[in-house]
Design a protein around this nucleic acid. Structure first.
Length: 821
DNA sequence: CCAGTGCATGTGTGT
DNA sequence: CACACATGCACTGGT
């Protein structure tokens, strides 16, 4: 609660006492109201940015300069402020506009007439700032909840000054009302604007329409307590107002477009049964006026509900929200219920059976016999029925609003209090003609899908930048080419994400926005130094860069700050002709296979640049010999083509002696190198995991012997040395070989995740993995049909002057592993 | 056999 | 975790 010594805007009160900021009716949403200590009048509702911070990404756009502002109010500080004329500004704009009379402020003056509003706006703005900066910012949600609810929707303070009602004249038009979506957007963007819009107090300036009765009429149960009604306050809802830089006068002259659909807290839906915002009626003033004009009565919007499939089905049962039923419908004690007479806009009367079912120590209220009415209104699932009350008399009026494409979006918005929406302007009351004329009619299924879709996307995703975390094994399933992947959003290389779970998806959360990276090629030299190759956009020359550099989408030699000698396009290329040819061959092969694969069966998914790199790695210069040969499947397994780097395809020919120990073919080199990397990483990790592995070893040793070979597959085993399978000493040898086989299978894995992937792929524990890696390399090579590790010949592997990096190989392998496994 | 009725249950949401 | 609600399903009565 925050106090401020301001003048009460209630002209009857005009107390110079303090004004309190108290939690208002929008308890869940963080809505606040300004209450006068003296008279209790409420002036304004504020939603601190925490609310919409939760509802979407937290990004806002300054209404003056258009600058994107991030609402960091939860994490650190709020970088925007609310305008007294509506909208939000970045702090810079706010400071610049201090002391200036803004157009929208003049707008207020024009319509209020006595300048009170402008003063009040300043007051509210100041209070809002104080509230945000000191009170809300430091308040925990729990603290906020503990504050008393003072502003009662539907309770009208008799002393509410006329000035308030005049402000709420329906003649008011928004400058941007010709943009239907803005109604939705702005209501969330500018939740705390101290705009003096009192649409709910007297929505139309029409005395017939009483949007906020004091609740003394109609159903008598579940009303607010007498004490509550005794001191009634006027909830003041603001409508979205998007200011324009050119002031408001022009906007006021603009033709009045369809009115924004504002979710209005129900007239007397207070007390114990506070209605969820999604049930708040979103009847526009025009609709109210239409109803009022037709019925010549005062219309009190009560609630609305989007028809479910069950509601609109043939059963004819409309499930009523419990809170709505208990608040606005007669109290019933027996499950037989009561007949309820409801009138539609055409004056036709319908009789529904209002009843309930016991349900989990609660009640489930339904309206039975609604099918004729629903059909008469041509409603279907996804459409909205609206219940209002005619006063005097308390007669119920049922209206309807067809679902539109916008409505699906509005549903989400409607979850917020004050969630305005614009949508199609067909509304209320079974106007069949309008229904038929509604060109934006959406099918039942599509609406339902939209509803579901929107429902699922309503989760808070926070303010940080996120991307779906895809582990390497998951990424194998992606049918994204190397080129495409390189152009995807990716985080800064220095960014360290927090891993969060959203809807069972692991999300990397970054403080910095993702960036578009330029396609690069990673290589490593024999010395082990890794490099990153990038091609200049201007001269197409290849430059070598540090491996940990994230290259922007647009890059030229002038951006090469790491090599002063090659920071100009005039400088020579970092790569020689042979290397360049090899690299180009890789790319050419990639493109060729990509094109060819388009005519292939779907199972032969699009080969990526990774394939091409794999081809280069595995086949080396022999790739030329392939020429234009069709990239048919290999003989090793039908789904793989030449160049496939999976463990099956790169396995040496079966049988001992096919490859001599000193063989330096690409296959042998690749296998040796991968195994070397594997061993290095395993040894590095082994010390850290020793204790854990020892524990697992005890558990796994008892069961591994019997379950390993089958999972690895006969093919792999047959590729190894059959004579070893018959080794008399046997069991240990078999086990070692099996593990070695798995180690070779593991070579397809990402180096950093080799152990996990291996275990996952072959049902092998970490213990066995370590055992495998602890085997002498010579034994491994022997088992793999290879000789001892020979010197590495980079050109034979990558063709670009060095090895294709481990990461690249791992990527290639991972891409294929989904098929192999 | 079908439609209607009443209740149970699963799921989503708010606290 | 409790509650609301959408929907499924068993039961019953009428045709």
């Amino acid at each position: 609660m925050k106090m401020g010594s301001k003048i009460c805007m209630n002209q009857v009160c005009r107390a110079t006492t303090s004004i309190e900021w108290k939690k208002g009716w929008g308890l869940k949403s963080g809505a606040y109201a300004t209450l006068c200590n003296n008279c209790g009048s409420a002036y304004e509702n504020l939603m601190f940015c925490y609310t919409f911070h939760l509802k979407d990404t937290g990004w806002r756009e300054c209404t003056l300069c258009g600058k994107r502002i991030h609402c960091g109010c939860v994490a650190s500080k709020c970088l925007h402020e609310y305008n007294d004329f509506g909208g939000i500004c970045c702090i810079t704009c706010v400071k610049l506009s201090e002391g200036q009379t803004t157009g929208p402020a003049q707008f207020h003056d024009e319509h209020v007439g006595d300048g009170t509003t402008n003063d009040l706006g300043k007051v509210l703005t100041q209070l809002a700032q104080v509230l945000e900066e000191k009170d809300i910012k430091n308040a925990t949600p729990k603290q906020l909840k503990q504050e008393p609810t003072m502003v009662q929707v539907g309770e009208v303070n008799p002393s509410v000054p006329s000035i308030i009602k005049e402000v709420g004249s329906s003649s008011y038009t928004r400058p941007d009302q010709n943009k239907p979506q803005d109604g939705v957007k702005n209501m969330h963007e500018f939740p705390a604007q101290p705009t003096l819009k009192f649409s709910l107090s007297t929505p139309l300036g029409n005395s017939n329409i009483k949007s906020f009765p004091n609740g003394s009429e109609g159903p008598e149960h579940n009303r607010g307590s007498p004490s509550q009604q005794g001191k009634k306050t006027l909830p003041v809802l603001h409508k979205p107002l998007k200011p324009t830089n050119n002031g408001s006068s022009e906007a006021m002259k603009a033709p009045s477009p369809p009115q924004a659909r504002v979710a209005r807290p129900p007239a007397d839906g207070r007390g114990r049964h506070q209605l969820l915002p999604r049930y708040w009626p979103r009847i526009t003033d025009q609709e109210l006026q239409q109803i009022s004009g037709h019925l010549n009565s005062t219309i009190v919007p009560l609630f609305e509900k989007i028809l479910s499939a069950s509601d609109a089905g043939r059963i004819g049962r409309l499930v009523l929200p419990k809170a709505c039923a208990e608040t606005y419908f007669p109290h019933i004690n027996n499950s037989d219920g009561l007949p309820i007479r409801v009138q539609d806009i055409t004056g036709k009367e319908w009789t529904f059976q209002f009843r309930f079912w016991p349900n989990n120590n609660s009640r489930m209220y339904v309206l039975e016999g609604v099918t004729p009415c629903i059909q008469n209104m041509q409603l279907e699932a996804g459409d909205t029925v609206t219940f209002s009350r005619i006063e005097p008399g308390g007669k119920l009026v049922i209206g309807a609003r067809k679902a539109t494409n916008n409505d699906a979006q509005e549903i989400q918005m409607n979850m917020l209090p004050n969630g305005a929406s614009s949508g199609e302007e067909f509304t209320f009351a079974g106007a069949s003609d309008n229904l038929a004329a509604n060109g934006a009619r959406t099918s039942n299924e599509s609406i339902q899908k939209l509803l579901i879709s929107e429902k699922k996307t309503m989760r808070n995703i926070g303010s940080k930048n996120k991307r779906l975390l895809i582990h390497s094994e998951d990424a194998m399933e992606l049918k994204v080419s190397w080129e495409e992947a390189q152009d995807l959003l990716r985080p800064s290389p220095t960014a360290r994400p927090n891993i969060i779970l959203i809807e069972d998806l692991e999300i990397e959360e970054y403080d910095d926005p993702p960036v578009f990276g330029k396609r690069t090629i990673f290589t490593s030299r024999p010395s082990g130094v890794e490099e990153q190759w990038v091609q200049c956009d201007s001269c197409s020359k290849w430059r070598v860069l540090p491996v940990d550099i994230l290259i922007p989408a647009k890059w030229s030699c002038s951006d090469n700050i790491w090599d002063s000698k090659r920071c100009s396009c005039s400088a020579g290329e970092d790569i020689n002709v042979h290397q360049l040819d090899a690299m180009q061959r890789v790319n050419k092969d990639s493109k060729r296979r990509k094109i060819t694969s388009e005519n292939k069966l779907p199972v032969e998914c699009e080969p990526s640049g990774l394939d091409a790199l794999a081809t280069a790695a595995v086949l080396g210069d022999n790739m030329n010999e392939m020429g234009d040969a069709s990239p048919g499947t290999t003989t090793k397994h039908p789904r793989h083509r030449p160049g496939c780097s999976c463990i099956v395809c790169i396995q040496p020919p079966s049988g001992k002696g096919k490859h001599p120990p000193s063989c330096k073919c690409n296959v042998c080199l690749t296998v040796r190198r991968r195994f070397k990397t594997l061993m290095q990483r395993k040894k590095k990790r082994q010390s850290d995991r020793e204790a854990e592995l020892a524990h697992e070893k005890d558990q796994e040793s008892t069961r591994n012997a019997s379950e390993t070979d089958a999972t690895v597959g006969e093919a792999l085993l047959q590729m190894h040395h059959p004579e070893n399978n018959g080794t008399p000493d046997g069991k240990q040898m078999d086990e070692a070989e099996t593990e070695a086989s798995k180690a070779s299978l593991d070579l397809n894995s990402h180096p950093t995740r080799e152990d996990e992937l291996l275990a996952a792929a072959a049902g092998m524990s970490l213990t066995n993995l370590v055992n495998a890696t602890s085997l002498p390399l010579e034994m491994y090579l022997k088992q793999s049909g290879l000789g001892s590790l020979g010197p590495c010949l980079p050109s034979q592997v990558s063709g670009i002057g060095g090895y294709v990096s481990e990461a690249t190989h791992a990527n290639m392998d991972r891409e294929k592993k989904g098929e192999e496994v």
